Simulated scan of single mutants.
Amino acid sequence: MPEIVETTIYGLEELSEAAKDRARAWYREDGFDHDWYDAVFADFERICDLVGVELATQRVHLFGGGTRARSCIWFSGFASQGDGACFEGVYRYAKAALKNIRGYAPKDAELHRIAAALQAVQRRNFYQLSSVVAHRGRYHHEYSMAIAVERDDPMLREMTADAEEEVGEALRDLARWLYRQLEREFDYLISDEAVDEAILANGYGFTEAGERFG
């Protein structure tokens, strides 16, 4: 025969410290399932545009039907050897890239260095270098990117001896930069402060022991 069981539901702020920790652990494991990296990806897409990288795209299916274009950016993280980020696309010289990056991210010395390195190697090759970046293998880190560099010179001059290495390393540094931003964002989002804010904003309820109710 059915029976009615009454359970008192608590908000996060009403729990003991031990129960709060249990509630936070639930959120990190089961409640943290959204595309938390979207803002980082959007920032990276803008940076790529400024330095001259046209990211490749692929069609992804939406839950409600239809598709949308998604930039070819991948990552894995954040505690295993081999974790990292990578992307696919085409790099070409972008006029005023260094100036534009400094304007967009005035305090980011690493982005300034990457843009300056690309500008320097382009200058030595009369701004004629281009590069195709493709993902290879099942891992996602900077060395899973195959980077082919060419010089489009109507006089058929060869690119300088350092060009392939310089462009490749700068693009891999860009992937490393992306990974650090993703790691920083993830660390913030799973911090007690951010988890508490998310739990309270969603109005989640818990038992006295900190177990999710409902």
Rank of each mutant, 00 (worst) to 15 (best):
A120T: 02
Y139N: 08
Q181K: 12
Y37I: 01
T8D: 14
V51N: 03
A116G: 15
R113A: 14
E45D: 10
G52C: 04
H135M: 08
A18S: 11
E17K: 15
K20C: 13
G168E: 13
Q181G: 08
V132T: 13
R176P: 08
D187I: 05
D49Y: 04
V195G: 12
E45Q: 09
D21H: 07
E208M: 10
A117N: 02
R212N: 01
I101K: 07
H61R: 14
A148D: 15
R180C: 04
D30Q: 12
A18R: 09
A170M: 03
V167K: 04
G103W: 06
E158I: 02
R138M: 09
D153S: 15
Y91R: 00
E193L: 07
S191C: 00
G64A: 04
Y143D: 07
P2Y: 07
A115F: 04
A39P: 09
C48Q: 10
Y10E: 10
D30S: 08
D30C: 11
G31Y: 04
G77V: 11
R138D: 14
G89E: 06
Y27N: 05
D187A: 10
V195W: 05
R176M: 12
E193N: 01
H140D: 00
E14V: 02
R151M: 12
E6C: 01
A116D: 14
Q122I: 13
A163G: 03
Q81G: 12
V60R: 06
D21V: 15
K20L: 12
E14R: 01
A25M: 13
E54W: 05
E110L: 10
W74P: 00
R92Q: 14
S76Y: 08
D30Y: 09
R113T: 13
V5N: 03
E54H: 04
S71N: 04
A209K: 13
E6L: 00
W26Q: 11
G84K: 11
K95F: 14
I199L: 15
Y104F: 15
G103R: 09
R212H: 06
A42I: 10
G31Q: 03
Y188L: 07
A194N: 01
A69C: 02
E54R: 08
R24Y: 05
E3C: 00
D21R: 12
I73P: 00
A146D: 13
G77Y: 07
K95A: 10
R46Q: 15
A79V: 00
R184P: 06
A198E: 15
E197N: 12
E13F: 03
E208Q: 14
L189E: 13
R113S: 11
G52K: 02
I73K: 03
G65L: 06
R176T: 15
